[in-house]
């Protein structure tokens, strides 16, 4: 293990290293460069000092992202547990159904929610046809959260499911054997042993939710501007790459902080003896 990897092994890693350098490291450097320069290429902090103007947008983005993450978790956890306890053919079918929407284009899925939620959309048509008054559904924050949950739910279900399905059933029996009832089995065995799945699920839903711009544009209208929208506008309309880069940088840092806080909590689990993978 301590031996230096052979030339062959190092060559195998080469494509990935080149890829990382070109498409991960270099863009990061460029983001930092743009964030701290002005149009003439000279150093400035004005992009960073302009950020507080967008504080409300940051807060709203994180808030809606959190909301979507929590709702996804509440839906996904019991579902993942149910799937993991089913017979194998049922499991395969259910997982297939969970993944199926992911095969459809992301834009298409969001568009179809528009036609469902619109003022003259499917839901309101049904409501008015049975004599009820129509509801304002589209261009609300609720619609944005709904879109996030719908689009990112599979990323919550799959990691939790994959941890649960690997859980040794004899652990559950051991808990019952030692005097644990159904609640004890859940709270002392299933939940603590699925934390790693929950953590990756939260990461995979929270990060894209916070930085999304498409969902908020299509389902939130002008009422729900998220930080992703602002960044997109800097690049596509305002042509202010420097402010856009600064906003991206701050968003990255904020997400990092959120992740660090969460990892700290799950590390708390490890402290009491949980083995990390």
């Amino acid at each position: 293990m301590n031996q230096k990897p052979s030339l062959g092994k190092r060559l195998l890693a080469a494509p990935h290293l080149v890829w990382s350098a070109l498409f991960i490291i270099a863009p990061l450097i460029m983001v930092v460069y743009y964030a701290f320069t002005d149009g003439n290429g000279s150093f400035t902090l004005s992009n960073i000092t302009a950020i507080p103007d967008y504080a409300d947008t940051f807060v709203l983005s994180i808030w809606l992202g959190l909301l979507a993450t929590v709702i996804s978790l509440i839906i996904a956890y019991p579902l993942a547990y149910f799937i993991s306890q089913s017979k194998l053919p049922v499991q395969q079918t259910m997982i297939m159904l969970v993944m199926l929407p992911m095969w459809m284009n992301f834009l298409l899925r969001t568009y179809s929610w528009m036609t469902i939620l619109e003022d003259n959309g499917i839901i309101n048509t049904i409501l008015t046809s049975v004599g009820l008054s129509s509801l304002r559904l589209i261009n609300t924050r609720g619609a944005v959260v709904l879109g996030m949950v719908y689009d990112f739910l599979p990323y919550m279900i799959l990691p939790i499911y994959s941890v649960m399905v690997k859980l040794d059933h004899s652990l559950i029996e051991a808990c019952q054997d030692l005097g644990g009832n159904k609640w004890d089995v859940f709270s002392k065995v299933i939940l603590p042993n699925s934390i790693s799945g929950i953590v990756s699920g939260i990461t995979m839903v929270f990060v894209p939710s916070v930085s999304t711009f498409y969902i908020s544009q299509k389902l939130g209208g002008t009422s729900t501007q998220l930080i992703g929208d602002v960044i997109e506008r800097q690049f596509m309309t305002a042509n202010n790459y420097h402010l856009g880069a600064a906003l991206s940088l701050v968003l990255m840092v904020l997400i990092l902080v959120c992740m660090a806080i969460m990892n700290h909590f799950s590390d708390g689990e490890i402290e009491t003896g949980r083995i990390s993978a």
Binding site: D168, S170, E173, V189, R274
Partner: peptide, 11 residues
């Protein structure tokens, strides 16, 4: 149990 079934999250 056959494979001990110790709780891996506990010491």
């Amino acid at each position: 149990f056959q494979r001990y079934a110790l709780f891996p999250n506990l010491n």
